Amino acid sequence: MPNLFPIEIVNPLPEITGTGAGQVRFGRSWRFDFDSGDFVLTPAGQVAECGNEEAWLEWCRKALMTARYRYLVYSRNYGQEFEDLISRHLNRAGNESEIKRITTECLKVDPRTSGVDNFTFTWEEDTCQFTCEVTSVLGGSGTMNGMVVIG
């Protein structure tokens, strides 16, 4: 009779070793319009797809918009922790440093991301808008935008 309580732990995700572009899979995704909050449709009414680096950029945008630990559907490594900055009462330089750290940690979880650089910050009272450049292991790049309310 088979054991009802197996001891063996099965990892459903394959392990990715190394950081070379040949070892990391880029897949496809549904194209999403973040401004309207809806999927992009083709003229035939089908949901439009995007592939490779465009799908990776869609993942980056979504990860930066999602609060970490809030949704059970995501792993504990997915998303950002910008809300924690409110309780730290840091000055602008400290907040900018933490925004860089949190954004980099959020995006570098994905093995397709090789770098997060070139941050710029714009402050309006207690709101900080930032942009950064993300680079994939294939050499492609894109610009990410974000906003953090500090006060």
Rank of each mutant, 00 (worst) to 15 (best):
Q46F: 13
V47Q: 03
A48D: 08
A48I: 14
E49L: 15
C50A: 13
C50N: 13
C50F: 14
N52F: 09
N52A: 00
N52W: 04
E53G: 11
E53P: 09
E53H: 04
E54P: 07
A55N: 08
W56R: 02
L57V: 12
L57Y: 13
E58C: 09
W59C: 04
R61L: 13
K62D: 10
K62G: 02
K62I: 12
K62R: 11
A63D: 00
L64W: 02
L64S: 08
M65C: 01
M65P: 12
M65K: 08
T66A: 07
T66N: 04
T66V: 01
A67D: 12
A67E: 04
R68E: 07
R68D: 00
Y69R: 00
Y69L: 03
R70N: 05
R70S: 07
R70A: 08
Y71N: 10
Y71L: 04
L72E: 05
L72T: 04
L72A: 04
V73Q: 06
Y74H: 01
S75V: 07
S75H: 05
R76M: 15
R76H: 14
N77I: 00
Y78P: 02
G79M: 03
G79A: 05
Q80D: 10
Q80I: 01
Q80V: 13
E81K: 04
E81V: 09
F82M: 01
F82G: 00
E83A: 01
D84N: 11
L85H: 10
S87I: 15
S87T: 15
S87L: 15
R88I: 14
R88K: 12
H89P: 02
H89V: 13
H89D: 11
L90N: 11
L90E: 02
N91G: 12
N91C: 12
N91F: 13
R92I: 12
R92L: 14
A93V: 15
N95G: 11
N95D: 14
E96L: 10
E96I: 09
E96M: 06
S97M: 12
S97E: 13
E98V: 05
I99C: 06
I99R: 06
K100E: 15
T103R: 03
T103C: 08
T104H: 11
C106T: 10
C106V: 06
C106N: 01
L107S: 05
L107M: 08
K108G: 02
V109N: 11
D110P: 01
D110E: 02
D110S: 03
P111D: 06
R112F: 03
R112L: 10
R112H: 01
R112I: 00
T113W: 03
S114H: 11
S114T: 07
S114I: 11
G115A: 02
V116R: 06
V116W: 09
D117P: 07
D117M: 15
N118L: 09
F119C: 11
F119K: 04
T120A: 08
F121A: 00
F121G: 02
F121T: 10
T122L: 08
W123V: 15
W123D: 14
W123I: 15
W123G: 11
E124C: 05
E124D: 13
E125W: 13
E125V: 14
D126Q: 13
D126Y: 08
T127G: 03
T127Q: 00
T127S: 00
T127K: 08
T127M: 11
C128E: 11
Q129R: 15
Q129A: 14
